[in-house]
């Protein structure tokens, strides 16, 4: 029995139907049978297809999506630990709720630009950053009220190089195919040779596009870059 069915959760009346009413964005590339192959041009075509079937009410696909995204709370715990575990249990529970709520409400907008788990990770990262920012703001206010400076320093957690929203928004702003090349190279772990093979272009062209894309990305990110530790 599938996860959805086990929990009294029917695709035709629950998750699938709820999401079915939300408008679907157009897939970024025309759907062809080739897109289904992870070895062809689009490495995430299978995930896009899975999500679209789940949204359309396919119970098997719904179960598969729920199973794949079951690791979201564990992602939050892992990421929180890596940032020095600065949040209290109740604050972390709030982040968990916010991330899951955002995730499900945005699922119809999944465009297959990343692996499903990577896409979910960005919601977790974003909600955690928002909570950390709120905490930092509160700490500064507390300091103004006479708190101890050393205590404030101790509470400062590891700060990542980028605000995740800015980073992925900036990459998206590069536009296809450059945005896809940058994403696939870094977040899809594909070498330039593999990207060129999948796209049917020369390695030289892919590398040139990557370099020019990186130039533009730097300009987009520059105002938001945090100092390297």
């Amino acid at each position: 029995m599938g996860v959805a069915a086990e929990l009294g959760f029917q695709a035709t009346t629950g998750f699938g139907a709820e999401l079915h009413s939300a408008p679907l964005r157009r897939p970024r590339r025309r759907a062809t049978s080739q897109r289904m192959s992870t070895d062809s041009g689009d490495p995430y075509a299978a995930d896009l297809d899975l999500v679209r079937r789940a949204i359309a009410g396919d119970g098997v696909a719904t179960d598969a999506v729920l199973t794949r995204l079951g690791c979201v709370p564990a992602m939050l715990r892992s990421l929180h630990r890596r940032f020095g575990a600065p949040l209290r249990a109740d604050e972390l529970a709030e982040v968990d709720q916010n991330a899951l709520a955002a995730l499900w409400s945005k699922l119809p907008g999944f465009e297959g630009r990343a692996m499903l788990e990577s896409w979910a990770f960005r919601f977790v990262q974003l909600e955690l950053h928002k909570a950390l920012d709120r905490r930092r703001s509160r700490a500064r206010l507390t300091l103004l009220d006479g708190d101890d400076l050393a205590e404030l320093s101790a509470r400062e957690e590891v700060v990542p190089a980028f605000d995740p929203t800015i980073l992925h928004t900036a990459i998206a702003k590069l536009g296809p195919p450059t945005s896809d090349i940058v994403s696939e190279h870094h977040f899809g772990e594909l070498g330039f040779d593999e990207i060129a093979r999948r796209r049917g272009e020369s390695v030289s062209t892919i590398k040139a596009r990557y370099y020019r894309g990186l130039e533009r990305l730097k300009a987009l990110l520059e105002p938001h870059l945090r100092t390297d530790s």
């Binding site: 929990l7 892992s78 899951l100 990577s118």
Partner: peptide, 27 residues
């Protein structure tokens, strides 16, 4: 960071996590 967190999360997901995700997806 993304890859490591996802790998760690996949390895440490509990039944409670899965139920929580389903619950969040269910009105």
């Amino acid at each position: 960071l993304e890859r490591e967190v996802i790998a760690e999360a996949r390895a440490s997901t509990t039944d409670f996590d899965r139920a929580r995700v389903v619950r969040a997806a269910t009105p």
